[in-house]
Structure formats: structure tokens, C-alpha cells
Design a protein around this nucleic acid. Structure first.
Length: 425
RNA sequence: GGAGAGGUGGCUGAGUGGUCGAAAGCGCUCCCCUGCUAAGGGAGUAUACCCCCCAACGGGGUAUCGAGGGUUCGAAUCCCUCUCUCUCCGCCA
């Protein structure tokens, strides 16, 4: 969420940001300011009354101690009335506070000035293209290949759990493990601390990173224990330091975690979600940074370059998009997407998303650091996939496909695989 | 799942209804003295929010002793609910 004081002082800017993100109802900014004002004035009144009541209660204590019961009794009568008044004010205060909080959670992060204004994916800017996207020649789509070779079993996955929960079999299971190891090792070399994290999170954590109240439909719920299955490692990792005050010397904090991710993907169907294009459970290596506010945008470029380097080492053609205001999401202030080329589908597939959230997530989480003045200050958070597995796998299955339906193992993965090809007879 | 014990500031640890946001010690910061090592003295040292000008400095106030609610003029202290930790039993990779 944004800082209320900031919203108060930059109302027009916040509203413009909302409109640019495609949020029509920017009137909630005015609503918020109104409710906030009312709340603040009532806080003042209530605190004053409490102050008076506290002073009087102390006085009563003194009088009681001196045995002046009659005098004390008089004050007690007065403070009893005060108490009633305070209670009324407190009830009103609670309502206002709740309203204020609700409104605050509905206001999205403001896009950075460097972000192109636009309403849909068509307005995203191609920031960079690397490699040459291959023609659709003799290659067959990855889903046909894996079925032919028995490498991924979608049907048995559907039997055991449901659509979008595939089994990976034999060499492809191993290839995924190789990718995970490769990604984790690379991140480790870059100074990211590896974490193994809980796969279920509670409601506070979901709110901290912004899955609630905006996107709860994306998550699987475990109602009996009031958990959500993580839609991305971003949630547990970013919440790792929730409600903490970090030392400035320790910034930036950089974490990497491999986890499965679960997403309901309600409403998705059709040819675009065939094969590995979209799954309910998939593997991902996620990078999270907690940084000093001054360095956040540099850290974003750095994060993007790192994710790009992974694809370059895998020798997979990709392009980087700078997401426009309308396509970037509620919590981000700036976001890049990395997309790999699927030759058989002749389309781009998103494999990474690198975002700067500014203080938006950190404020919800009360994630702070102590600055040079010794004051607490909200720090900034970023995250990026490094990388999401299934679509990278899909790209490998198509790009590294040989005419005999075998797969050449990308060079950087060979040490993990112990072989140069998969499926060759 | 059952039984019991317990959650106090950066840490240790006092405090069982009144001047307690909280003793003391440790740690940390600054100052003074001393001046090899060591030691001594003083001051400061939680977080959030509100107000004083939506700035800085400074000042004032409120809330917070695991969380929420209740009793009371007054709660760290009493009552209820929840939560977490520890011990024992049960179950189990």
C-alpha cells in the first residue's frame, strides 16, 4: 500500500497512476482522504479524552492513598462519564480505521515515470531482443514430442490430481532438476542466499505481498487450517522479514528459493494453455531483493540483466518487454517480462517477470531498516523469476529438438545431466 | 489429539490492581576522567500513530508487557478466547 501522507499530498498523481493502470474508480482516493481526515480528527479528540481520564485516574490513586475517599468518589463519578464518551468515540474510530484500511488497500502502486503509458499488452515496449527466433520447420510442438517419448504424462496427472498437474518422467524429470540446480547455483554465485521455504502461507503473509485482497482467486486454499498454497516463492521469501527492522549495513538482502508454485488459473482454457504453456502446479526459482530505496531502480536493472543472462547461457532466444502501465499489475511500480521463443508455436512465452515494488509491499509488511539518522524507514522490495521452469523446458524441447526427436542437452546443463543428448537411440 | 508449564524492551530478568513504558544487569551510542593492559564516572538507548505548520529541529499526547476481548475510576498484574514455545503422552517421515 501507499503512504497515506503521500496520497494526501499527491492525490492527483496517484489518481493519474490509477487511471493509467486501467483502474477507473480513482474516486476512492478522494474517499480515502476524506475518511482519513475524519479519522485523524477523531484520533486527536479521543486521545485528548484518554489523556484527561489517565490524569484523573492517577489523582484518584493519590487520594485513595491519602484516605480521602469522598474526594476520590467525586472524581470517579466524573471519569465514569468520560469513560462512556471514550467508548463511543473508540467504536466510531474503529469503523473509520477499518474503512480507511480497506480504501488504502484498493489503491494500486503508482507506475514509475519511465514506464510507458498504455492499456493492454499491445502497448508493452520491446526493451531488448536477443538471438534469432527460429522458423517453424520440421519441429513438432513440445506437447507432441513429450507424449511421443513418454516424457511428460498429462493424462495420469489428470487422473491423480486434475488437469494441469503433470508427471515428469525419466530424463525430463532429471532435466528439470538440472535446470533447478543450475539456476540455484548461478544465483548463489551472484550472492543470493538460498532459502527453502514453507509451501503454505497464512493470510497475513498473503496480504503482505498483495495476493490479498487483489488476487485471492489465484491461490489454492486449505480452509481447515486457514492456509494458502503458495502461488510463488515470492510470498514466503518476502514475508521472511515481515515486521522487522533491518540493519542498513545488511542491505541489500538477496534471496533465492526454488519451490513448486500452485495457481488456480481460473478461466484459462484453449490452445494457449496446451502442454507446458500453463499449469496449475509448476516449478520456479525465485529471486527476492530487499534494498535501500535509493538503489531500487538500479537493482531492478541488475535483476533483469541477471535473468537475461540465464537465457543467454542456455542459448535460448528471448525478448524483454518493458510492461506498460495497463499491463503491469497492482503492486508494481515498474516491471520487465522476459519471453522465450517457441518455434513450434511461433509465439513468445513468458518465463520471467522482474518487478520493483518500491515501498508498496514493505509498508504492508512493516519491513524497515534503520537509516543514518537512526530513524526507521520503509525499505524497497523487488523480485524476479530466475526462472520459471515449464516454459523454459518447452523452449528447450523445441529449440534443442533434433530431427530424430531426441533432445540435445544445453551445454550448461550437461554437467548436471551427465549426458549430451536425451532420447537418442 | 490429550495433560501440564510458560510468552515482559536488542538480550538476561524483576514486577500479582494505582505515580510502571516498565527495576536491575548486559549490550550499544556519546561525553568526562584515566591514559600499558585494565578500570571508573555521567548521559542516552523500543515501536506505531496523532497534534503543535502535511518540512527540519524540538515539544506535547495516545496506544502497545504474545494477540483480541472483558472487569475496573485505574490492568504487565484479575477473567475469557485465540496463538506460539517448551515438557510428557499419543501419532508419525
Amino acid at each position: 500500500m501507499l503512504d497515506v501522507t503521500y496520497i494526501r499530498n499527491h492525490a492527483e498523481h496517484v489518481k493519474e497512476g490509477m487511471r493509467n493502470k486501467g483502474e477507473e474508480n480513482s474516486g476512492i482516493v478522494d474517499q480515502l482522504i476524506e475518511v482519513d481526515e475524519e479519522w485523524r480528527s477523531l484520533v486527536k479528540k479521543t486521545d485528548d479524552l484518554r489523556s484527561e481520564s489517565n490524569t484523573k485516574a492517577q489523582k484518584i490513586g493519590e487520594l485513595m492513598g491519602q484516605g480521602k475517599k469522598d474526594e476520590a468518589q467525586k472524581i470517579i463519578e466524573y471519569t465514569s462519564k468520560l469513560k462512556q464518551e471514550i467508548k463511543e468515540k473508540e467504536e466510531k474510530l474503529n469503523v473509520l480505521k477499518k474503512d480507511r484500511g480497506k480504501l488504502l488497500l484498493q489503491i494500486p502502486n503508482v507506475p514509475h515515470e519511465s514506464v510507458p503509458v498504455g492499456s493492454s499488452e499491445e502497448d508493452n515496449e520491446v526493451f531488448k531482443t536477443w538471438g534469432t527466433p527460429a522458423e517453424n520447420d520440421w519441429r513438432i510442438p513440445h506437447w507432441e514430442l513429450v507424449e511421443e517419448q513418454g516424457w511428460i504424462d498429462f493424462e495420469r496427472g489428470a487422473k491423480v490430481t486434475g488437469a494441469g498437474f503433470p508427471f515428469y518422467v525419466g530424463p525430463i524429470a532429471k532435466l528439470q532438476r538440472a535446470l533447478i540446480n543450475y539456476f540455484l547455483n548461478k544465483a548463489g554465485e551472484q550472492g543470493y542466499t538460498e532459502l527453502q521455504v514453507p509451501y503454505f502461507i497464512n493470510e497475513d503473509s498473503a496480504r503482505g505481498t498483495g495476493q490479498i485482497p487483489d488476487k485471492e482467486d489465484m491461490m489454492y486454499e486449505i480452509p481447515r487450517d486457514e492456509f494458502f498454497a503458495i502461488p510463488t516463492a515470492e510470498v514466503p521469501v518476502t514475508n521472511f522479514h515481515r515486521d522487522e527492522i533491518l540493519q542498513k549495513e545488511n542491505l541489500p538482502l538477496k534471496y533465492v528459493a526454488y519451490t513448486p508454485c500452485w495457481r488456480r488459473e481460473a478461466g484459462s482454457y484453449g490452445k494457449d494453455v496446451r502442454g507446458l504453456n500453463r499449469l496449475h502446479q509448476f516449478d520456479k526459482v525465485e529471486l527476492v531483493k530487499m534494498v535501500h530505496p535509493d538503489t531500487a531502480f538500479d537493482e531492478l536493472e541488475n535483476l533483469r540483466e541477471y535473468a537475461e543472462s540465464l537465457l543467454e547461457e542456455l542459448n535460448i532466444p528471448y525478448r524483454t518487454l518493458l510492461m506498460c502501465t495497463g499491463d503491469m499489475g497492482f503492486t508494481q511500480t515498474k516491471k520487465y517480462d522476459l519471453e522465450v521463443w517457441s518455434p513450434a508455436q511461433q509465439r513468445w512465452l513468458e518465463v520471467s517477470s522482474c518487478s520493483n515494488f518500491g515501498s508498496f509491499q514493505a509498508r504492508r509488511m512493516m519491513l524497515r531498516f534503520r537509516n543514518d539518522e537512526g530513524d526507521t524507514e520503509i525499505l524497497h522490495t523487488l523480485n524476479g523469476s530466475g526462472l520459471a521452469l515449464p516454459r523454459v523446458l518447452a523452449a528447450i524441447l523445441e529449440i534443442y529438438q533434433q530431427e530424430d526427436s531426441s533432445i540435445e542437452v544445453p551445454e550448461v546443463l550437461q554437467p548436471f545431466m551427465g549426458t549430451e543428448t536425451i532420447g537418442a537411440e
